[in-house]
Design a protein around this nucleic acid. Structure first.
Lengths: 212, 212, 212, 212
DNA sequence: GATGAATGAGCATTCATTCAT
DNA sequence: GATGAATGAATGCTCATTCAT
């Protein structure tokens, strides 16, 4: 009945830490900040995670466990054309990206650090996973003659993730430029998500599709 | 012949600070680190810039002064078609991006901070400048009937900068995936530059061009 | 039996800080000096008091809590004549002043700063308290016809505290002038206390008493 | 014709330094503060005075040169009774004190430091000078049978200087208590000067005069 | 004579972590 | 299992002073 309170606490600390790290950066976020925001004792962080660094790793480990999953089922669905699979991949990516904005902001920060910690391993796996999925779809499309040859898949994924990152980081700018200040936050997010999805789809399509 | 040493020193500190901030982040880079790397006394940073924060601002101010310049001449060249202008814009962007990688890495970090400091103003101006240039070219192309209507220019610039950022941040990954470890750093950079340039051009072309 | 060690430590820091601040001044006393003298880690000062400034305030707060107390009982004693009450007030003042010399030296320093900090509030209350007590006694004496009208009570208190301050600050000079170098420190203090007490009493008497 | 500018500058620095030291204390006043306020280069202070400490000494030396002067002529005036001489002494003291408030505030601070620097020598001489003058007058009055025997002259001077110091340091308090906020600064100073003068005179008179 | 540049020492404070309880 | 107390190291910054010009 009674969940171990520690489990809850651990999860709560992870959540709070992710948000603070995402917002202010790893170094600029003190263990005190996290403890205060999470409403726990300062010593708890070392107690639960060993160190601030290990806490960071724990955040990434928690995310690594859910990489790919529903996507893989898409791949194996023989009913869908490669292009349909691609669209589902992109939709899935955008959906997941929007639902985990603070994590992706943090991931972007960590990518910039480029140290050799377990974190980079997780990030590497995530990128690899995206790459492999796309590769399979493209490969299938090429075999069927739907897609061009000579596709630079790493560059494509760079555009996918890069555009999402850039859009998300500068969304205030985007809002202002497009005079969308009147929209509620929720409506704006929805608008952005749709825009990004369509934008990526149109890029991928024209780059992959054989000209008739 | 003898440059004022002070000018050199100030500039040298700026250079070193930019690289360290880019590499390790603002908070994780200590004034002592910068002073040591630049071979100057710690107190010199306060002496020249007032504070660590002001030093950061000085880096951005130094870059804001050279925003857009050669590009503008391109715009006014009546000999060029809109598509040629677009290509020159993208070439110029990629060229500048590659020659100022550490600055762009730093800019990426600062964008993630999203505080309201003079830095954001400079970044805002840079983005706005890119946006305006592209807007003019697109507008001209649309008038001439070369380009489609309904182009989401902010999204396009997000793809431009986002792809560059993502590619640069994960270039080690890109190198590994594409089995380019044998290339010299210089050759790899050249390869990457060409790839990115072509990639962006093809994206922009297909998104802008009227289908025949 | 076992006092909380933390309480002791906090109190000990307060004590040491008061003495160093009194001796060398606030700014001239470093947190390091206090920590070293008190035998605690430097970080403890921030830990216990938040900052050097707050530590100073804590010293004054500790003293504000014991302002007036035994004196008030004197006031309510109907057995005593106003003049007797006055004598008791002055004796009490001198006694307290001598037993808290380092605090009064510090208070003198802080009075000279004249900033608007919580410290000034405490000092103000102390002065006001002295003033009010004296006012009551004088008022009672005037009603009974023992004391003159038109007594400038603030000036009287200035003489009381000013004389004590000046005597204490220049006690080495006083010792030398009066050739009291042979006296032990204790004996000298006793001598000084008696002298000051008599001196203040005679001043107050002649200024307050109705000439016959 | 042309006064050495340096002389002016030196004097100006002395003046500014005295005021800042008086207001904020020696340690809390930085050489930069003085240089800025005086409108001179930072290096000037070391250049003219050797060090910050020496600058402080220079301030006191400048004042030591004018100790006692007009007072001595009073002493030798055979027309005046001892009591008249005493009044003139007190008037002179109050007058000088009010015209050099910032110096006396600084002197009070230095007295509290009690280090063995040339400054203490100057302060010592000043006190000694006051003491000697008073001693002569009292001695003369005693010989003439006007004054009591057994006068504690050091205590008397402590009251004189102490009351002046205390009144000056807490003059804001005095103003408030006496509801004198409506007075102009000038009028208030005049009022205070008169009050202090009368107060000291009445104290000295009753303590010195033989009861009839 | 006068000064901008530069320095090393010191400042108060905050940090992540450890430890005794 | 959980925590307040405590620590040493590091932080950004200011200091009085010196020096080359």
């Amino acid at each position: 009945m009674t969940e171990h309170q520690s489990t809850d606490k651990r999860g709560h600390i992870l959540e709070v830490a992710q948000q603070l790290f995402a917002k202010n950066g790893f170094t600029a976020t003190s263990v005190r900040d996290i403890a205060k925001e999470a409403g726990v004792n300062i010593a708890m962080i070392s107690y639960y995670f060993g160190s601030k660094e290990k806490l960071l790793e724990a955040i990434f480990l928690a995310h690594s466990e859910v990489v790919g999953l529903q996507i893989k089922s898409v791949l194996q669905n023989d009913q869908l054309t490669p292009m349909e699979k691609l669209e589902k991949l992109l939709d899935g990516f955008v959906e997941k990206y929007f639902s985990q904005q603070s994590f992706h902001r943090l991931a972007q920060r960590m990518q910039l650090r480029n140290t050799d910690s377990p974190i980079m391993k997780v990030l590497h796996e995530m990128k690899q996973s995206n790459l492999d999925l796309l590769r399979q779809i493209v490969s299938e499309g090429q075999k069927k003659g739907d897609f061009k040859k000579n596709i630079d898949i790493p560059l494509l994924t760079a555009t996918m993730l890069g555009t999402a990152n850039q859009l998300m980081t500068t969304k205030a700018f985007y809002k202002e430029v497009n005079k969308l200040e009147s929209l509620s936050e929720e409506a704006f997010q929805k608008h952005l998500k749709k825009k990004l999805s369509l934008h990526l789809k149109s890029i991928f399509k024209v780059l992959l599709k054989h000209e008739p």
